[in-house]
């Protein structure tokens, strides 16, 4: 079962931590808000690291309905 990842744009503060830890999976748009780009770009552990490393807990990761992060 693949990971399901969402970014709450209202919570995102543009730290860029997610795009740094999981480059290719996340990127910042022109407004400095994180977006999901391609979850297959990095290993799952990096996606989790990115979500746990979000300063505002804006990234939610679930698998099969179970929340893995934050």
């Amino acid at each position: 079962m693949a990971l399901e990842v969402s970014v709450d744009a209202d919570k995102c503060m543009g730290s860029g931590n997610c795009s740094f830890w999981a480059p290719g999976a996340f990127d910042l748009n022109d407004d400095g808000v994180a977006e999901v780009v391609d979850l297959d770009a990095v290993p799952e552990e990096k996606i989790l690291l990115a979500a746990q490393g979000c300063p505002t807990q804006a990234i939610t990761v679930t698998r099969d309905g179970q929340r893995l992060a934050p």
Binding site: G14, S15, G16, S19, F20, D27, L28, G32
Partner: peptide, 15 residues
Amino acid sequence: FSRPRQLMTYRRLLA
């Protein structure tokens, strides 16, 4: 200052 996306490029270069 208020340029998070642009800064990210340099964060990678620094790494």
